[in-house]
Amino acid sequence: MGNLDVAFNDVHVLDRLSEIDSPIRCLDPRAKVIVTMAFLLTVVSFPNREVAELMPLCLYPAVVLAVGRVPASVLGRYLLLASPVAILVGAFNPVFDRHIVFRVGSVAISGGWLSFFSILVRFVLTVSAALLLLACTGYVGVCSALGRLGAPRLLVTQFVLLYRFIFVLSEEGSRMVRAHRLRAPDSRWPAIRVWTSLAGHLLLRAFDRGARLHAAMLSRGFDGFLRTGRSIRWRWTDTLFVSCWCGFFALVRFGHLAERLGRWTLEALS
């Protein structure tokens, strides 16, 4: 349960970052969701051995990080936590693809190593984009954007209620674990038979509390949408934000920016 407490605290930390005042916070959440999805599509659309042409896309998370005033240490921590999957799967590429693509001096670079580095770069870019969306928009903002973009109302309600009930469950769970530890200080973990009973009781208690909470929300006029008190209207700044970034992504995808920059640099130096 210690890990769960830490995890639920992380949820709070990320969501609170969206309350930091910044120019990005003023944008319509829909604009930020659209740009994030366009960014993700651009990243994954490159061929699997492409590394250099992905680099210009680092500009987007770098700008959002700076303008959104998101601490780089928070992003770095989440990248580290999420890295094992991409590294583990990508690490097989150099093993199975040994076809030599080019040489750097005496070092031969195989297609497998190129695709592995490409996976790492994609991983950093895509995870950063997702986390920055949450940090700059907030969970309620993202839910609101999904609802306004056409997601079913029930699904949006479920997103909101899940977020609220995560904390309900964690409080109930902490109380039960504390009660067990006070009664059985010598055993670190309950026996499997006790686990099932604990989990079952946790479920029923959380359900009862959840039902009371939901009734209270309904009696206060809850209709599936959490209102933040800020008026959200699509403005010209949102259109500018979406069009500029989508234009940049298209330029990076089809304009071979890295190659051109490399050529200009070499021509300038020679």
């Binding site: 309600t157 479920q158 209620l161 899940l162 609220r164 009930f165 995560i166 309900v168 469950l169 479920l203 959380a206 359900f207 959840g210 039902a211 909470l213 939901h214």
Partner: peptide, 9 residues
């Protein structure tokens, strides 16, 4: 809705 939220959590 409440059961969905709680079970989701």
């Amino acid at each position: 809705a409440p059961l969905m939220g709680v079970l989701g959590a």
